[in-house]
Nucleic acid binder design. Sequence first.
DNA 1: TAGATTGTTAATCGATTAACAATC
DNA 2: TAGATTGTTAATCGATTAACAATC
Lengths: 218, 218
Amino acid sequence: MVKIFDRERIFRLLTYKGILLKFKSLGFIRVFSDNIAEALDISSSLVRKDFGIFGISGSQKGGYHIDRILEKINEILGTGDLQKVIIIGVGRIGEALIRYKGFENDGIKIVAGFETDHRKINPQAEIPIYPVEELRDYVRKNSIKIAIMAVPEMVSQHTYELLREAGIKGILNFTPTSIKSSEGIVVNHVNIEHELANLIYFVNLENRKDEDTISNNQ
Amino acid sequence: MVKIFDRERIFRLLTYKGILLKFKSLGFIRVFSDNIAEALDISSSLVRKDFGIFGISGSQKGGYHIDRILEKINEILGTGDLQKVIIIGVGRIGEALIRYKGFENDGIKIVAGFETDHRKINPQAEIPIYPVEELRDYVRKNSIKIAIMAVPEMVSQHTYELLREAGIKGILNFTPTSIKSSEGIVVNHVNIEHELANLIYFVNLENRKDEDTISNNQ
DNA sequence: TAGATTGTTAATCGATTAACAATC
DNA sequence: TAGATTGTTAATCGATTAACAATC
């Protein structure tokens, strides 16, 4: 049986990975749940609970072996064989992502981009840009499962259909449109407007709290 | 007293806003909690509960007035006066964000960028790019509270200190480094690697579940 | 041994959902 | 009136935390 972990826990696993790599680079071999907790501003109970759930064990004397945790995390995440990802829509954001180095840490590689604007097509580039017409064939030939969607809002629904028909199983959606994911397709959203608006809300809240405090003192 | 809503609820509020603007553009004047729930794949109980918490009321006959919900949402979010945001780090991602139109919907405007690379400085541009040395003055003179951090990972901690000293109150962090937010500063992370890795996990999970099903049938 | 940490259980907390009375 | 929807209460669910026995 495959255990199913929820989104938050998996995110936390990725955060553990990050901080453990940092600890490792600083020369540490082992960590206590407390070290991780403090670095990430969570409780050590939660760290131990997570590790328990993920089947990561330590010892009462020396805590946890960093390398052993990392191995286990990679195993759970299925890191190992390189994950090939394509980008559909090579505008500003698409291009920024294509050029972005640093996915390699997690065994992720962006292998191609797809565009409707013919001026951007460039099959000879290091990361080739193909016309969207070739999407379907490319996805099948290279058994691509993951796509990043970075097209204009207007065509997002249509693009979703294209990806679905091409056989894509997971989409990271940079479009502001919320897409109802259908049968067997996972869609995750990255909505920068919402992130900003959320941040602004909490910053203004701090202000308002301050004002409250002041008026309460009067 | 200022009510404090949690992160998830505020995000949902933003999603409500999006779908309601869509409904409105389709000519609708009113909605039922059910319409919203179905469009967003959540329960109508939750929609009504949220609305109750946010002080949005409707009628048993005609549901909710879209415009009235939108007004209330904007009121809660504090939309109205334009929110000025700066970007520190004008690399690929920073540049993509600077050029990105579409924040205006939420009353957000990127007003300036800051860079260490002198070749990128351009104070005459539509959205001017200044040297980081001018950050502090600019932030104070223009009472900027929000910054987007899009610098290389190596300098993220240092950049955080710069922003804090300049008086920034909220940071949207595009860096993979997890920053422990200190006194009175809100830090939100956008970690595209993690988003991708998370997506990949869930897609692979679907596969593994399928395999399980097959092997169970044998 | 004394002290510290893991692993785990039980308690707590909070968010979502179900259900339904009140209302139009 | 009959039917449908809101608003709200109580039930459920699940995740986090506190606490502590077991262990090194």
